[in-house]
């Protein structure tokens, strides 16, 4: 069930994709929908970490916050300001949903950077559900809030009349591509980074190039830390942008 067979050669064994395997946690082979797997484990760890930061960390309710509470407030302020700036004042009531998305992706990305861990956000199944949820919510919300007026999103009134039908086609295509790019961007980034880490780590088996390999792993790891935060930010801000389109479809 591994990809090891392909990568054999010169005594080197690469298993860069093994880290992404979904495995039952308590033995057995079959992965049913209810099976407790490593997905469950790492999502549960993410939930615990989030609860530790956002609930335990703020339990002091201090006017002058301690370090953990400062971080929790930083998260809150960061996402709140993002929602307010991008979506506008009327988008603030969707803030808890966007905050949920952000902290889940952020913590999953960073927990995935722990060696031997499992990165839930590297799976297209996870990111696709997130992206489709955003897409459906935004689309339904757009029609509920604006009725047929939501369709004016595709009718670029700033363009010359002759161009508008062509633009409308392009706009509609781009609209339906959104969930695809939205999900693949996140999963692809996480998967690629972790796979590259594993490949470089595999080279460490050769004594001659192992120092280079270790340095490369360190460098890529630093890059991945950056990517983890940026991808969580990108996913969230795009959600805000889509939400803004739903609330204010007029260009």
């Amino acid at each position: 069930m591994t990809v090891a067979e392909e990568a054999k050669g010169g005594g080197l064994e690469f298993h860069p994709m093994d880290q992404f395997l979904v495995k039952p946690l308590f033995g057995g082979d079959a992965v049913h929908w209810y099976t407790v797997t490593n997905v469950t484990l790492w999502m549960a760890i993410a939930v615990l970490a989030i609860a530790a930061l956002m609930v335990l960390g703020t339990s002091g309710r201090a006017i002058v916050p301690n370090r953990v509470q400062s971080i929790a407030e930083l998260f809150y302020g960061f996402v709140y300001k993002m929602v307010e700036d991008v979506t506008g004042k009327d988008g603030v009531k969707y803030f808890p949903y966007i905050m949920t998305l952000f902290v889940f992706i952020f913590f999953s990305n960073f927990l995935g950077l722990i060696p031997m861990s499992f990165t839930t956000t590297s799976h297209i199944a996870v990111t696709a559900v997130l992206a489709i949820a955003v897409f459906l919510t935004v689309t339904i919300l757009g029609f509920v809030k604006n009725g047929a007026g939501f369709l004016s999103l595709f009718w670029v009134s700033a363009a010359p009349l002759a161009l508008r039908p062509i633009l409308a086609v392009i706009e509609i295509i781009s609209y339906f591509v959104r969930p695809v790019s939205h999900s693949i961007r996140l999963a692809g980034n996480m998967m690629a980074g972790h796979a590259v880490l594993k490949v470089f780590a595999g080279f460490a088996a050769i004594a001659a190039i192992s120092p280079v390999s270790v340095l490369a792993v360190v460098a890529i790891y630093g890059l991945e830390v950056l990517v983890s935060a940026i991808q969580a930010y990108v996913f969230t801000i795009l959600t805000c942008v889509y939400l803004k389109d739903a609330l204010h479809p007029h260009h």
Binding site: W33, Y34, T35, M43, A125, V126, L130
Partner: peptide
Amino acid sequence: TFPNQIFWLVVT
């Protein structure tokens, strides 16, 4: 593995 991941994701 999709149903498993989706189920746990929704729970999470």
